[in-house]
Structures are given as C-alpha cells and as structure tokens.
Amino acid sequence: MIPPKFAYRRAGSAEEAVSLLAEYGDEAKILAGGHSLLPLMKLRLAQPEFLIDIGRVHELSYIRGEADHIAVGALTRYHDLEHSELLAAELPLLAHASGKVGDPQVRHRGTIGGSIAHGESASDVPAVVLALDGTLVVSGPSGVREIPSSEFFLGPFETVLEPDELLTEIRLPRPASPGWSFQKLTSRAIDWAIVAVAVQGSSVGLVNMGSTPLRATATERALADGASITDAAARAAEGTSPFADRNASPEYRKHLARVLVRRGLEEAAGRAG
C-alpha cells in the first residue's frame, strides 16, 4: 500500500515546525516516527496535504531530571525511554511500559510525543502519563501553554491540540509513592493491548477502556477511603465504556480491567515494600 499524495516538508527546529503548521493549518500533520500516521495514511483514514517531518529536530529528544519533575522531549523514542538509566531510577513505570510497546523495530522509530498527540486509547504510554499526572507542554503561534494530561484527551484520535500547535515536552512529577506496575494483556505478542493497566502508588491508568485513556477513578477513591486492594480493584471498570472488537466484548474488557488492576496494585504494593 502506498500512502496518498502529500507534500513533504522537513522542519529543522521546533520553531520552524510551528511556523510551518501556522502556514498550512489543518491541511498538515506532524510526522515524528510515523508508526501511527503512515499506517492510517495507507488505509486512507488520514489524507493530509502536507507532512511536516520533525524527525531531525534533535532538540526535542531528551530525558532530563529537573528540580521537581522529569522532563521528556516529545521526540524521545520508546527505545530511548526503555533504556534510560534516569527513568530506570526515577520513573521505572515509564521505562518498563515503553519496552512493552510494539516490537524492537517499532520502538526504534515510535516517539512518546507522537503517541500522545495521536490520541489512540489503545496506546500504552498515554495512560502511563495520565497515571503519573503528567503535564503536556505545547508550542503554538501565540506561545507556549501547559496542559494537564487529565484535560488533554477528548475522544478517539482527538486531543485539545490545535492544528497549529506542536507538543514539545512531557513533564512528569517525581512519584510520591515508589510502587509501580504495568499489566498488559494482548492476543498475540505484537498486538495492541486488549486492556492494559498502569499503576503508580494508588494512581491507576487504563488503556483501551473507552475512547480515551482513563484513570480508574472509582478504584482510586476506594483506596483513598481505605478499601482493600481486592475491594478497590473490583470497582476498576466503573464509569468506563469499552469498545467491542474481535478480541473482546465490553464485558470481557471490564473483567480484565478488574483483574489487571488487582494484579497491578498488588505488584505495586509489593515493590513499595
């Protein structure tokens, strides 16, 4: 399959990418690793007139420890997240989950920012960023704004990003509680998660349990009220509306959410010691 025709533009800097976006508006899409966008283009589910390639904007690829958070450049690849010593020490949940995305070839190309901006609810890392209370930094023609991850995702492939805005950085506060877990169930090894669960302390992110990545708010509230892990996990699917597809019915996804959240909370509690 060959993608539909488009005009390719390469941005040399984040600033240039923003000005190209301003010029082309919603006729343009940002191309990072391309592992979400190019497959959609082959299927004609996306037909942008312009692709703005930020693959050479090395200034957007970094993992830095700041005073009160870890800053991750939007163009940082899964492979780099997976093998980062800083993340292994400070945010092992993100390093581990990144190593579970796709396969080595995909992780050599796919980026954290691309995954988040794409807004696919079956994607692993957006729910991890949500569970970690991340903040998303975006640049547009009128400057920079910071968006809490809880307000970023609107629906399937839909986020609050404006057509002329570029996601540049993901800020992740250092977790207050060290226990973490990532639980993912797939049909075949390479598949997207049927359901996955990201746990950091008593924060719980859900993958593929609705049209956006979600927090298991009923579980989190129950834990805050002193419920046991078993009782809190039993509420993991409350308020969710998962899809049916060839892998699972909504009922089965809800069952998986309850089971995986219980396993995740238990593993996180074990790691916290």
Binding site: Y8, L31, G34, H35, L38, P39, D53, P104, Q105, V106, H108, R109
Partner: peptide, 8 residues
C-alpha cells in the same frame, strides 16, 4: 532495525 514499509 526498522520496518521499511512504515518509513518514508
């Protein structure tokens, strides 16, 4: 390693 069907 990359999958060359998904790289321009």
């Amino acid at each position: 390693s990359v999958k060359s069907c998904t790289v321009l």
